[in-house]
């Protein structure tokens, strides 16, 4: 009876830990969000970069993106929420709004193109996965690990 109780306790503890681990993976998954204020071409039309976009996202300092700028945010979890205040030309009044988007779990980094988003272009134009290029030549750039016979001691 005692052994059975002990086994149940161990199984319960393991399940609890696994549950917490899964929860941590979901709520703690981090993504890099690159926000571009760059001119974009789509279907032969050109969508110009804005003069200035002020952006703020939870857990990050507010940032300003001038024309042709790329800024970086870190997003923890799958919900991306960026508040913006965009000024198209120096003389025009700013537009305010919020970008709300779910980031796919498997994406490490995403690129948000602001002019495409403001122009209401399809999602695949303004919200794309950023894939980092792997190192060009693995064999030529070996990071040498230097050990002497006493390193371990």
């Amino acid at each position: 009876m005692r052994v059975k109780r002990q086994t149940l306790f161990i199984v319960g503890a393991v399940l609890l830990l696994v549950g917490i681990a899964v929860l941590m993976v979901i709520i703690g998954r981090g993504h890099i969000v690159y926000v571009d204020n760059k001119t974009v071409e789509y279907n032969g039309n050109e969508y110009k970069a804005y003069n200035l976009v002020e952006l703020s996202a939870k857990g990050n300092d507010p940032q300003e993106a001038f024309a042709r700028d790329r800024i970086l945010f870190k997003c923890v979890g799958q919900s991306l929420k960026i508040e913006y205040e965009a000024t198209k030309k120096q003389s025009s009044s700013p537009e305010k709004g919020i970008i709300n988007k779910k980031i796919p779990f498997s994406w490490d980094a995403v690129v948000v193109n602001l002019p495409a988003y403001f122009a209401g272009l399809p999602e695949e134009v303004w919200f794309t996965e950023f894939i980092q290029e792997p190192p060009a030549d693995k064999s030529s750039s070996n990071e040498e690990i230097v050990f002497d016979e006493f390193t371990a001691f």
Binding site: L17, I20, A21, L23, M24, V25, I27, G28, R29, G30, H31, K74, V76, D108
Partner: peptide
């Protein structure tokens, strides 16, 4: 490697270490 940030990352590392 799994890109788990902040406190959840620390808690997960602790669970993995157990």
């Amino acid at each position: 490697d799994w890109r788990i940030y902040g406190i959840p990352g620390i808690v997960l590392a602790m669970i993995i270490s157990i």
